Amino acid sequence: NITNLCPFDEVFNATRFASVYAWNRKRISNCVADYSVLYNLAPFFTFKCYGVSPTKLNDLCFTNVYADSFVIRGDEVRQIAPGQTGNIADYNYKLPDDFTGCVIAWNSNKLDSKVSGNYNYLYRLFRKSNLKPFERDISTEIYQAGNKPCNGVAGFNCYFPLRSYSFRPTYGVGHQPYRVVVLSFELLHAPATVCGPKKST
Rank of each mutant, 00 (worst) to 15 (best):
N1Y: 10
N1L: 10
L5M: 13
L5E: 12
C6N: 06
E10N: 09
A14C: 08
A18T: 09
A18N: 13
V20G: 02
Y21A: 04
A22C: 09
W23G: 01
R25N: 03
R25D: 00
I28P: 02
I28H: 06
N30W: 08
D34H: 09
V37T: 14
L38N: 05
L41T: 12
L41Y: 15
A42F: 13
F44P: 15
T46A: 12
T46M: 13
C49L: 04
C49G: 02
C49M: 04
Y50A: 02
S53H: 14
K56T: 11
K56R: 14
L57H: 09
L57R: 07
L60D: 08
F62S: 08
Y66P: 01
A67L: 12
D68Y: 05
V71G: 01
R73M: 06
R73T: 05
D75K: 07
E76W: 03
V77W: 04
P82T: 04
T85R: 15
G86T: 01
D90Y: 08
Y93A: 01
L95F: 03
D97Y: 10
F99C: 02
T100G: 06
T100L: 15
G101Q: 01
G101A: 03
G101E: 00
A105F: 09
N107Y: 01
K110I: 07
K110W: 07
Y119P: 10
Y121F: 09
Y123N: 15
L125F: 13
R127M: 03
K128R: 12
K132N: 12
K132G: 11
E135R: 05
S139N: 11
T140L: 10
N147Q: 07
C150F: 01
C150S: 00
N151I: 08
A154R: 15
A154V: 11
A154D: 09
N157P: 01
L162D: 00
R163A: 15
S164Q: 07
Y165F: 05
F167C: 00
R168W: 01
Y171Q: 02
Y171M: 05
G172V: 00
V173C: 08
V173F: 13
R179F: 00
R179P: 00
V180P: 00
F185Q: 07
P191N: 14
C195R: 08
C195K: 08
P197S: 15
K198M: 14
